[in-house]
Design a protein around this nucleic acid. Structure first.
Lengths: 153, 153
DNA sequence: TTGTAATGAGATATTTTAGTCCCATATAAT
DNA sequence: ATTATATGGGACTAAAATATCTCATTACAA
């Protein structure tokens, strides 16, 4: 549904939303290990989020990354947009027909248009401050999961 | 949203639904050229659909492929299932958290659960016989599009 | 000022998905 | 029988997404 890149970006942003109060910089390696996400990969993703004004970073001994604005002002959709993962939910035809539009609709066009609208508004309505109580959940389960994985290998 | 494989599979099935009345076999190369879809790739996809009882094929001079049952009895969802492209709309967590479920929900869990249900029922409710009038649209536009493309190259 | 721990950035590797090629096999027509 | 035209299926290639590696740069701290 979402690219892994995008899913990781959202996970990390939610982590930050809970962790940083005001301008507390969290090092990426900590986020990566807490969430069980590949460090180098996450670093690039957060870099892109910084370029788009979602996060802000400083490089130093006590450096790291933080949210560039209030968690209330960042939606899931914003992050997807920053990571270029939204055209699927805007313009794109479900059947990938290149010239499908309202004037020349494919079989699925109108149903799909409705679904896209709903999905979009759902993603726009969730800010990084929503359900912060479940973020603990996320971290705990992620940790548990990749501990189980590393135990196997 | 859907894999290309799946989108091609649905396109071809819709084409068949319009083309075959009863046991008329259509050669794959015709479907491919009408829809502007890579022939060899489509052949494999239709092969998989035949294995899953969606289509039926015969190899001969006048051979080709046809629907294995009435177009009314084949839904978009059926094709997605045959091509293994449904887990996204069933179990999978939007944020790709491996252990997310109703008991340990992530931030998006409940909203996403609702969306998934709606997606599913939408996809299940469309049979290959729906909106056959738009299938002509699809073919005309596909043709127009890949003619434009080949003109460029 | 020197060392350390972080990000920035570009190159490279791996995996998955998409797309192609080749040859065997089946069936209808001549 | 032989030929023509289709699918079946395995091997191969290409492109995109995912993941890793290396080194430079920044800023704090001893």
């Amino acid at each position: 549904m979402l690219s892994l890149t995008c899913a990781y970006g959202i996970q990390a942003s939610l982590y930050l939303a809970r962790e940083v109060k005001t301008s507390t910089f969290v090092p990426t390696h900590r986020i990566a290990s807490e969430l069980g996400v590949p460090y180098h990969f996450l670093k690039k993703i957060l870099q892109r989020l910084s370029e788009h004004g979602i996060t802000r970073s400083v490089r130093s001994t006590k450096g790291g990354i933080t949210l560039a604005k209030s968690a209330d002002d960042i939606s899931i959709w914003d992050i997807m947009t920053a990571l270029g993962d939204v055209s699927r939910f805007e313009t794109e035809c479900l059947l990938k027909l290149p010239e499908c539009d309202a004037n020349h609709p494919c079989v699925m066009h109108s149903s799909w248009a409705i679904q896209k609208r709903q999905f979009q508004s759902m993603l726009k309505s969730h800010s990084l401050n929503d359900g912060t109580e479940t973020v603990g959940n996320m971290i705990a389960l992620a940790k548990k999961h990749h501990q189980a994985e590393t135990a196997v290998s």
